[in-house]
């Protein structure tokens, strides 16, 4: 790998790590189910970028794109299901604040 690409790769990795930090922070700190999902979405964006970057760096653009297409389809389906779950949780509690979501003990 030539040094220029390597430096660019390093910067990409740094930004991806920062995106991960934002996403995890959002899920941990948020008191709102929808916002927790948005945090997860940010994590998935970071992963998408990482996969495409990996494909670009080692000349597997086609493979990386094929993977990302499948990944996007999965992401959509999961978000639809998650949206349904959030709506029902709201119906029962009239709130989407997880602190008021009953007594699941873990």
């Amino acid at each position: 790998m030539n040094p220029d690409t390597f430096e660019l790769f390093r910067y990409f990795i740094i930004f991806i790590i920062l995106l991960f930090i934002s996403g995890v922070y959002c899920v941990l700190v948020s008191f709102n189910l929808v916002r927790a999902l948005i945090g997860v979405e940010i994590l998935i964006k970071a992963v998408t970028l990482l996969i495409i970057l990996a494909g670009y760096i080692c000349d597997r653009v086609a493979l990386a794109q094929a993977i990302v297409l499948t990944l996007i389809v999965i992401e959509i389906v999961i978000m639809v299901v998650a949206g349904g779950v959030v709506l029902w949780a709201f119906k029962y509690n009239k709130t989407i604040d997880p602190r008021r979501l009953s007594n699941l003990r873990g």
Partner: peptide, 26 residues
Amino acid sequence: LDSPLAAVFELSVCSGLISVIFITTV
């Protein structure tokens, strides 16, 4: 990053469809 097809998907599906889902939920 040389991945136009994935970019199109990301733009239309993630940026479009997911927003619709979230807006509905919200």
